[in-house]
Computed example of a mutant assay.
Amino acid sequence: MASKKRAAQRGATRRPEKAARREWHVPAWIRSIHWSWVVAPVLLVGLFLGGREMVDRWTIQDVRVTGDLTVWNAADIISQVGWIKGQGFFSADLQGVYDNVLSMPLIKEVRVKKRWPGYVEITVREDIPMAVWNSNKLIGISGDLMAIPAHLNVDKLTLIQGDIEYMDKAVKDYRLIQQALAPVQVNVRTLSLTETGSVELDLSNNWRVALGRKNIEARARRLLKVMKRLPADQVAEVDLRYGKGAAIRWQPQQEKG
């Protein structure tokens, strides 16, 4: 028995439908953060550069000096730091001003401040000249060694001579001696230290004095007693390098004609 074949379908056939593709969209808030990372630094740099250019239009126009000045005057200090004028108010090199002023001889303390709208204020405190060291340096009352300002007259200052290793000792001894001699108003014109550190003096009353190396304060007090007992114009030299007393060399007697 013949089987009946199923008739073939005619006409267009449907394609099987593909599954819809799922697309992922970046949330708006993430996109905004992403762009802020790029834009924000650019804006900040632009604002910084633009702001700096704007504020630097305000410049330092003047330098003013205050303080109790004796050796220097305000014009001397201003001339030392005149280069600060014209610098931006906010970018001015105050450290450079401080270093320049402090490097000047006898300037002991410096304060530097910017003052609106456009000047620098410098406050200074001077050291006091105490003595001359080896004819070419100055010793301040603080004991610091420094150059001698060209305009400073040092003729009336004590001359201290010796090796640099004895400088601290010389300053200490000098102070003790000056303090001891204050009641008789006799000054030390020259204080010399030998190679062994022994102290020798040339005084304003024209006495030559040997104090030795030790017990300087006690020997200076003994020198004061000698001054009060002996006529200054008859003494040439005093040697106090003994445990007690003093050796005296008298001025030569002038013959009367």
Rank of each mutant, 00 (worst) to 15 (best):
W72P: 05
W133L: 10
Q179T: 13
D93C: 05
M104D: 03
S135R: 11
L102K: 14
V45S: 12
D202S: 14
S204M: 02
Q161E: 14
M1R: 01
K156N: 13
K137M: 11
I77L: 15
G96W: 12
V199A: 11
L159E: 07
V154N: 05
R10P: 05
G118N: 14
I30L: 15
A28H: 04
L145Q: 08
V186N: 02
T123S: 15
R208K: 15
Q80S: 11
L230F: 10
A170H: 14
M130I: 00
G50N: 05
T59A: 08
E255G: 08
G67E: 07
R15W: 01
D62G: 05
I139L: 15
N215Y: 00
N153R: 14
S103F: 02
A218R: 11
F89L: 14
T123W: 15
I164Q: 12
Q185Y: 03
V209A: 06
V184R: 08
W24R: 15
V184P: 04
V120K: 03
A236C: 00
Y166L: 08
W83N: 05
D99K: 12
P41W: 08
R189N: 14
E165Y: 06
S32W: 12
K256L: 09
V26A: 10
R221I: 02
R6G: 03
L49A: 10
I128H: 06
D76M: 05
E126T: 01
I160F: 10
K114V: 08
R10D: 06
D68R: 12
V209T: 05
P105Q: 03
H151I: 04
P183C: 03
L201D: 03
D163Q: 15
A236N: 10
S32D: 07
G67A: 06
K214V: 02
R222H: 01
E17Y: 00
Q80N: 06
R111K: 13
S135V: 03
T13V: 13
D202N: 11
V124W: 11
N136V: 12
L43R: 05
A75Y: 04
V45M: 14
K18W: 11
I107K: 03
V39K: 02
L224A: 10
R15A: 13
V45L: 15
R241H: 04
A247P: 01
R57T: 08
L43E: 06
I177W: 09
D56S: 10
L224Q: 09
W250C: 01
P129T: 09
E53I: 13
A20T: 13
V120G: 03
V101S: 01
D202Q: 13
A220P: 06
V186K: 03
R22E: 11
M146D: 03
D56L: 01
E17L: 12
D233Y: 09
Q87M: 09
L230A: 08
G86M: 05
A19Q: 13
A247M: 09
P149T: 11
A180E: 06
Y119D: 14
V124M: 10
G118K: 02
R57P: 00
G88N: 08
N215V: 00
D168C: 02
K225T: 13
K172R: 12
S198V: 10
Q234E: 10
N215M: 01
Q251H: 09
P16H: 03
D155M: 11
R221G: 04
R22Y: 02
A92D: 09
I139M: 13
V120I: 15
N73L: 04
I77W: 05
L157H: 08
